[in-house]
Design a protein around this nucleic acid. Structure first.
Lengths: 170, 170
DNA sequence: TTGGAATGTCAACAACACTGACATATGCTG
DNA sequence: CAGCATATGTCAGTGTTGTTGACATTCCAA
């Protein structure tokens, strides 16, 4: 793009897309895009007593209803103390329900209440709206590339968690 | 991909890539990938008394030497008080130099010292290594799509800051 | 010259991550 | 059953990074 030639033309032998300058641009793109990515939910949450940590918890509980605390811990990559603070407020406020496991009574299975589902909907609607616009502007081929690069950028365990979630949907 | 057909074939009329399920996968990909994106510098910084905020400041000062505090403020999207704390420690530790503006003495122009440049190098080497691997694994076409989607996801002001920086490099 | 705008600094506070220590209940194994 | 491991929850303390509010300095224009 900067050099005037199509990126496709330089596949194979030519590795201009791997220059430090290109990599730096990729890094800055990630930085600025992530800000946009979180901006809309953050605005909604700012009005309530919740933050980004609550959003993440609610998102993944909605995604995998009945998930255990330990499972959520691994997905979110935080300490149990940190997650517990968030879960406690969500449970107190009636957005999340915690049920003792039937097979293993040590486990707690987490579910969203109707109110919790309403919040999740509100937050993910906002976030999806931006993602939809970006996807539509960029087109299907770009979206495929986007997903490919992101997946390659994940840590191994995170890629595993991601694909497991991905393939369980639909 | 999930439906077995090439994504290219569904351009135009077919908008399967905009389903809620696809958007959700994009959202989760962003979440997990950003974790990988920051993991390496975070590990390096954990050993020192610095955090992600210091990394960001050092990155953009290196990127635009002599930039003013206000300029940096707009790029980073934080309050001046928040940035100031970070800058103060960096200046005290001799990584950043702050020079009073010649034209406007209210302004402070920021530069990395040699030591500051060394840290920046160390951090960006780590981050670029991961980005390089992801880019190489995904290939040039995917990289172009990646950048296209990220750019479309930014807020308008951030896109402006991003392209301005991008086009000033090289 | 005086008041407003821009810039930068100091102080206090909130959100959210961390570590460490410990309690409780349960499951598993010898 | 005894003893160890596992899953969860909690308390206390700390660090980073964001916020607001108050204030000093400097510049510019009426």
């Amino acid at each position: 793009m900067a050099d005037g030639r199509s990126t496709t033309a330089q596949s194979g032998e030519n590795l201009l897309f791997l220059t430090d300058e290109q990599l730096r641009q990729g890094i800055e793109a990630m930085f600025f895009a992530y800000r946009g990515f979180t901006a809309d939910p953050d605005r909604i949450l700012a009005d309530m007593a919740y933050g980004r940590a609550h959003h993440r918890a609610v998102h993944f509980i909605n995604r995998a209803p009945g998930t255990t605390v330990n499972n959520l811990l691994n997905i979110l990559g935080v300490t149990k103390q940190s997650l517990n603070r968030v879960l406690r407020t969500l449970i107190e406020d009636g957005l999340v329900e915690s049920k003792v496991g039937k097979l293993d009574k040590r486990e707690r299975h987490l579910f969203l209440t109707e109110e919790g589902q309403a919040l999740e909907q509100k937050l993910s609607d906002a976030q999806r709206a931006r993602m939809r616009m970006a996807f539509r502007d960029a087109g299907p081929d770009a979206v495929a590339g986007f997903r490919q690069v992101l997946e390659a950028m994940m840590d191994r365990e995170m890629r595993y968690a991601y694909t497991r979630l991905r393939d369980s949907g639909t």
